[in-house]
Simulated scan of single mutants.
Amino acid sequence: MTDVLAVEAASVTKTFGSVTAVDDVTVQVAAGEVYGVLGPNGAGKTTLLRMLFGLIRPDQGEIRVFGRTWAEDGVGVLDGVAGFIESPRFYPYLTGRQNLEGLALLDGGVRPGLLEEVLEVVEMTDRADQKVGGYSYGMRQRLGVAASLLREPKLLVLDEPANGLDPAGIRDMRALVKRLASSGLTVLLSSHDMAEVEEICDNVTIMRRGTVAFHGTIAELRGMAPDPGHLLVTGDDDRAVAVADEHPEVSLGRDDEGRLLVSGPQPAVSAYVAGLVRADVPLLAFTPTQTPLEALFFMLTDGAEPQEVAR
C-alpha cells in the first residue's frame, strides 16, 4: 500500500445537454484494493470510468490517478493503467495470440515471455491460436483482460466484466479478478450485480442516477442490510398465520400472487419454521426472495433519498 491513492475523483460532474450523468461524485481508491462502483444501468458508472480514461472530460471536479491529472500530465495519466470500457473488441479473423501481438506492437512491445504469461493467467493458452471469431463472449472478455495485463498495470479498470456471461462465465471471471487482486494489483470495476461486488470487492460506491447513494466497506453495507425475506408456500396458510402470532419478531406479508412472504432476523425466522413443523403445517416451499444486500441495493437505488456512509 502507498500513501498516494490509485484513483481520486473529487466532486466530479458531467452533463450531456439537460442530462446530468455524474453529479458531484467523489471516489477514493487505495492502491492494492479491489473497489466496486455499483449501480443499475444509467447510474453513471461508465461515464465516471470514461472520465478516468480521458475519453471525456468532467465539467467540474478533478480526477487523479496515482497523483497525476489530465491537465498536468496529459496522456501520462494512464502510465500503469489498463482495462476496457464496455466490451473489448478484437479482429475476429485473427487468432487471440495474433490480436495480442498486434496490441503489444502498438504499445511499443512487451518483455519476452509476457504474452504467454498473461494467456496462462486468464486460462486461454489452449485457445490462443484459434480465431477470435469463434470465441464465446466469455472468452473475449478474458482476452480483454489478457490484453490489459500486457501493459503490466498497477491499476486495472474493468467495466461490467461479467455482463452478458452465462453462470459458468461469471464464475470464471470472478475467480480471475480474485487471482489478480491477490497479486497486489489495484482493481476498479463497475457492476450492476450486488453478488459480484460482495464477493470480490473491499470497498464500494453505489450510484443512483448520477449521485452517490453509498460509500463504504462491504462490512458497513452488510450492517445496513434489512432482514432476509423468504417465500413461504404451505398447505394451510391460515394456520401458518396463526403460528406467526407466537413469533412477534417475524413479519408476514403477501406477494402479488397472494403467497406468504416471511421476513425477520434469521434466528426468529428459523424458530418460526420450527414452529410450523411442530404444528404439523405442511411446508411446500421456503425459498429466499432476495439476499439482504440485494434488498438494500434496490432500496438505495430505487428508494427515497440516498444514504451515505463516510469512509
Rank of each mutant, 00 (worst) to 15 (best):
M1S: 14
V12H: 08
V12W: 10
K14S: 01
T15E: 02
G17R: 00
G17L: 00
V25G: 05
A30Q: 15
V34K: 12
V34E: 03
V34G: 08
L38N: 03
G39Q: 06
G39D: 03
I56D: 01
I56G: 00
P58E: 04
D59M: 03
G61R: 05
I63Y: 10
R68T: 02
A71Q: 13
V75N: 09
P92D: 12
T95H: 03
R97H: 04
Q98H: 05
L100D: 02
L100K: 09
L103I: 14
A104Q: 05
L105A: 15
V110Q: 02
R111N: 01
D129E: 13
D129W: 12
K131R: 15
G133H: 11
S136Q: 06
G138H: 05
R140W: 04
R142D: 11
L143V: 08
A147D: 09
L150Q: 08
E152W: 07
D159P: 09
E160Q: 10
N163F: 09
N163R: 11
D166C: 02
P167H: 07
P167K: 08
A168K: 07
I170W: 01
I170P: 00
D172I: 03
R174W: 00
R174P: 00
V177L: 09
L185M: 12
V187G: 02
S190V: 02
S191F: 11
H192Y: 11
H192K: 11
A195D: 13
E196R: 12
V197S: 06
V197E: 05
I206W: 00
I206D: 00
M207Q: 02
M207W: 01
R208P: 00
R209K: 13
A213M: 01
H215D: 04
L221A: 07
A225G: 09
A225M: 11
P226D: 02
D227Q: 06
G229I: 01
L231Q: 15
L232K: 10
L232W: 09
T234H: 04
T234A: 03
R239A: 14
V241N: 03
A242T: 10
E246M: 10
H247M: 11
H247I: 11
D256E: 14
G258W: 15
G258N: 13
R259S: 12
R259G: 07
L260I: 14
V262M: 13
Q266I: 12
P267R: 10
A268V: 12
Y272E: 04
G275S: 05
V277I: 15
R278M: 07
V281A: 04
V281F: 08
V281H: 04
P288V: 08
P288R: 07
L293S: 11
L293T: 15
E294D: 13
L296P: 03
F297G: 03
M299Q: 11
V309S: 12
V309M: 07
A310N: 06
R311G: 12
R311A: 14
